[in-house]
Amino acid sequence: MDTSDDPITAVAVGASVFGTLSSAANQRRQGREAQKLANQRAAVDLADAEAVEKQTREAARLELERGRKLLKSQKAGFAAGNVRVDVGSPLVVAAQTRADIARDVGYIFERGTTQASRFRQSAKFERKYGKTLRTQAKWAAVSTLFQGFGSLGFRAKDAGFFKKKETVLGEGLNP
């Protein structure tokens, strides 16, 4: 019986083909899933960035509110002391207070923007890493297929799968 007709050989070849394909398919799937996970991780970063921005805006608004109240309180104090509030020192004090309030609000925004930016950058890197993982898995699958089928091909050749069937001539010293 020819090797290629042998059922055990067919089982061996089948196992080899199945194993290679299964291995490659799993590598591809692992890549796809890794990218999905990376995207999810990026989404978390983006959500964090938005939360920071929201917090920053609210903090700035509260700071502005506090400043405005302080200014009114200063004005009311000057007025109660019979000091004219529209000329001289009261104006200087008010200007100084407004400048301090603006500086504090500025710092609040700066800190929030920086934090949000960090989160957005992280989201970007996560997405990029996910893409890299998927590409990596794809090439690993290709490599597995190449190695598996290449090896199988050599073995099949050794086993005589690619040999042409020949008709054996009669015996004798004069062919």
């Binding site: 055990i8 050989t9 089982v11 061996a12 070849v13 089948g14 196992a15 080899s16 083909v17 199945f18 194993g19 290679t20 394909l21 299964s22 291995s23 490659a24 398919a25 799993n26 590598q27 799937r29 692992q30 899933e33 890794a34 999905k36 996970l37 993982l133 597995t144 598996g148 090896s151 199988l152 073995r155 099949a156 086993a159």
Partner: peptide
């Protein structure tokens, strides 16, 4: 969470086994 190294290793082993048998 995306780790499928077990399935990958199983596939490799099956392929290796088939090859060895052949």
């Amino acid at each position: 969470l995306a780790d499928r190294s077990g399935q990958i290793a199983l596939g490799s082993q099956v392929a290796e086994f088939g090859g060895a048998m052949l």
